[in-house]
Design a protein around this nucleic acid. Sequence first.
DNA 1: TCTGAATCGGAACCGGAACTTCGGTTCCTC
DNA 2: GAGGAACCGAAGTTCCGGTTCCGATTCAGA
Lengths: 187, 187
Amino acid sequence: MIPPQKTLRADARRNRERILASAQTLFARDGDKAQMDEIAEHAGVGMGTVYRHFPTKEHLLTEMVRSRFTRFTEIALESERIEDPFEALESLIVRSAEEVEGDAGFQLAMMGSDQLEWEGIEQEKAAFAEPTGRIIGRAVEAGVVRDDLTFEDFPMVMCGITSTMYFSPGGAKWRRHLELVFAGLRP
Amino acid sequence: MIPPQKTLRADARRNRERILASAQTLFARDGDKAQMDEIAEHAGVGMGTVYRHFPTKEHLLTEMVRSRFTRFTEIALESERIEDPFEALESLIVRSAEEVEGDAGFQLAMMGSDQLEWEGIEQEKAAFAEPTGRIIGRAVEAGVVRDDLTFEDFPMVMCGITSTMYFSPGGAKWRRHLELVFAGLRP
DNA sequence: TCTGAATCGGAACCGGAACTTCGGTTCCTC
DNA sequence: GAGGAACCGAAGTTCCGGTTCCGATTCAGA
């Protein structure tokens, strides 16, 4: 496997970018059922090239999930800047959900994020947990949500919303689901 | 494929029962990842025998799902007999969820029940929809739940609960999820 | 009991998809 | 601009799991 940080030959770097972009597109469309040769073809490279950069499909998927999680952390940090405690939480959840919309691969990852290990993204998960925990804690202290709400509830709720996205794709049905759950968070 | 109703030779009938029981056990444990040769071995028959009774894995799965759905309808009819409109709805949802607990295969079917066709169980689905629709309608009229609640919301909510069961197995985490959602159903 | 038709078992088949290999090509350095 | 290391690509290889086939076996009616 080619480590991404080292000085890569120009063509190698170009191909790596293309592979990542294609993987993003195809995993988003087909979830983990996207095939390696499809990804290679979409990127305009051979299978060998894909496997030189990512020794296994799992690694490639992990890379996708990692970048998505990093994006989550950005959203959490931005939401934290909102003054109103409830609006901050609302922003966190709604924007996170919108981020996942349209990416079947990440939806699957989201659903399994509690259970599965996803070796290699513990760090990203932890970085996300921090601001999220603070946002929830602030909402609880302000009394704008039920007082037994904890950080643990966040992935659980997201799992539910995401499953509606995944299994009823296309529509905005998940927003209805989110609305129901949101009503349940109130004190 | 051997139709189950006709006069079956004694050994054939016995084997059919064994196959169904084994399939139930293994699909419950492993979801749709349970393998046909495992099922055959567990039932103490050969692969050929399994395929004589059920021409494809899909058929076998469908048979499982069908019997589970029939059980759902029983639960709905029983719940309907409860006087209090909210308790009736509560009974329907909680008992349905408990029925699904511990059966990974059916959990998957539940999540996909909106989207997937599941050719051959439309009838069972319809039979279940009737009492369920009445229970929800009664709760809405009585004003014990939010007035925009519809039958459509039921599979959606179940999808969410079930996904927590599936992806956080073992624990009773899904009861927490259910509690949150339930709180959101109130007017 | 005897017979043949239904049923059984599991080895072999087959397609699909992840992964490997290696001869040819491209890029960078001197 | 020449040499060689790094890289490319696509035709294999392998593995896995659903499905089929057919000789052996068992059942039920006469």
